[in-house]
Design a protein around this nucleic acid. Structure first.
Lengths: 335, 335
DNA sequence: CTGTTAGCGCCTTCAG
DNA sequence: CTGAAGGCGCTAACAG
């Protein structure tokens, strides 16, 4: 371990001068700066980050809590987070929670032990344990896509999921569909609620009645899509259009529908949500809602860093724009 | 900031006793232990991780360098890394390099500044800058999937890519194919070389000649698959089977082939590599090589932690098993 | 512009 | 079993 003292001896200056040369070179004469830099290079010196952190009280790291790494939508968000964090001099501690409370607690507590300065949550749960809840009160924290549940309100970045639901519903109704099915992901979350009520508001406006048993599914996975489609296809009347609450679900649903020998969109239309990369290359390409995942990630960092620096937030709720991408998986019912 | 001193005062003991109570409770009388624990809880005390790290010289973090976050194959590896790291008491610093040297250098240098104890590289490049190269000599480092280039040899976890290439070739030749195309990813890497020579060795054994212009592509993306397929389809004779060096490429290739009105596998067979989740749900499902990505990630952590603790490695080269998954995208040529 | 000094929060001998 | 004291590597206040 080569430390600042060795360098100072090598350069024949004090440790303070070495420190200054590295942090604020303009406060050091050109001559000594050269000497110090030379010594730094010669000794192969790198300041110990931990030591700096103890002094400054800042770790320059942020924790990102993600329920599931394999969902490419989350990955795109994390990409945005990572990029923005790097630009702002922060590094990213990855916390794959698998949706487990215990893991959330563990990762969240890294902020309490000064391992990180703030936290970004991609899920909807309040990530601290009951024990830590009061300590967590003033912790910089943001959620993306979801909203953190609980008493204290934290800022969040989200889509207008209600409007997105309406857009999808309008799109399908425009094709003349009357019988709908929905395959949902996590049911308890705010986004589920918003998307659902968005769709419902349109259906009701059209005088279409929607029976409870046309809403199935409870996780964001391909398997859910397969099982959900299987259930819905066995209903009578069979839905002619299915809303899937993310693209993975839609991929599974399309797979099952085609397995049963039905044609998309001639027999059944399918919509996704997120606009995951592969969705454009499915057969047929998936009609879906494009979420600006990358930008959402960047935004989250913006807001979080603002909190970390104790600066006022312009707004504690950021609504991102969405786009309905009309592709081949939806169309008029052909009899 | 509530520190150890406050707790010690609250409990009416010395700071040393508080420290001991937390690290090695058995070295403290039951009575004082209770007092201290009570004070800890009351003060909401959490030891400052940075301070501990300065003392111990260990950060208990590892850096993971990944060229691309959106590839679900990498994500599965990282999932394994993350899980194993957590079990061993390490946390994961995510370094999305985008394949850029500058970013690799920056992230790699976190090990030199004591922000991390070791490094896992998912790409093939030596991640340190020339400046840092000598400092990096003794750094714990492992690569997964790829092999780190350079003078010093670091341990790596990989597949027998040569054998996998052979397996794919045998599979296609078994269907009677004679004209092949290949869409490759990164061309400079070891795995490219191994897969290619694996395939070639079989083709040569069968007396099939392979012209240079049947090898196209140079990045692991859907777009590469599309463009690569377009090129290959314009060749004369047209290949009746295409090897894609990862599943993303294959997805793009299948998309293009179908766009041109050709049938898979009746007109053309396609193979992928990695067994990404969606590959099983494509239309037709993709024949591919399953890599145990999750286990590979876990293994990497195993090896890395061994290095960090300066323990001898059982072996510096871990070869993981692969499986050829025969699915619908390959079959005999139908005339 | 530079050096001295005093910590940051914690752990770890060393006495007692 | 417990406390006092020193120091990890670095920075920041204060002199000079």
């Amino acid at each position: 371990m080569t430390n600042i003292k060795k360098v100072s001896e090598l350069a024949g200056v004090s440790t303070a001068t070495v420190s200054r040369t590295l942090k604020s070179p303009e406060r050091v004469s050109e001559q000594t700066r050269a000497k110090v830099m030379q010594a730094v290079k010669q000794a192969g010196y790198r300041p110990n980050w931990m030591a700096t952190s103890v002094k400054t009280g800042k770790s320059n790291a942020i924790v990102v809590l993600v329920p599931n790494l394999v969902n490419p939508f989350f990955m795109r968000i994390i990409e945005g987070i990572e990029q923005a964090a790097q630009e702002k001099g922060y590094c990213v501690l990855l916390g794959d929670t698998q949706g487990l409370q215990a893991r959330e607690h563990e990762y969240a507590s890294m902020v309490l032990t000064n391992r990180a300065d703030g936290l970004i949550q991609l899920d909807h749960s309040f990530p601290f344990s009951d024990n830590d809840a009061d300590l967590a009160a003033t912790i910089p924290m943001v959620s993306v896509c979801e909203r953190i549940e609980g008493d204290r309100k934290y800022p969040f970045i989200e889509l207008d999921n209600h409007a997105a639901g309406r857009a999808l519903a309008h799109h399908l109704i425009g094709f003349g569909h009357k019988h709908f099915g929905i395959i949902a992901g996590q049911r308890r979350s705010q986004i589920h609620h918003d998307r659902l009520t968005g769709i419902m508001s349109v259906l009701q406006g059209e005088g279409i009645d929607f029976k409870e048993d046309m809403l199935v599914g409870s996780s964001y996975s391909i398997e859910t899509g397969i099982e959900g489609a299987r259930e819905l296809l066995s209903r009578n009347p069979r839905p002619s259009a299915i809303f899937c609450f993310n693209d993975d679900i839609a991929i599974g649903a399309m797979f099952e529908i085609k397995s049963q020998g039905l044609k998309i969109p001639d027999d059944i239309s399918v919509t996704g949500f997120d606009n995951v990369k592969v969705s454009a290359y499915m057969d047929p390409p998936l009609t879906t809602i494009d979420q600006p995942a990358y930008e959402m990630g960047r935004n989250a960092v913006e807001v979080l860093v603002q909190q970390i620096n104790r600066l006022p937030l312009a707004r504690s709720r950021v609504i991102m724009p969405f786009h309905l991408l009309e592709r081949g998986s939806t169309g008029p019912l052909k009899i």
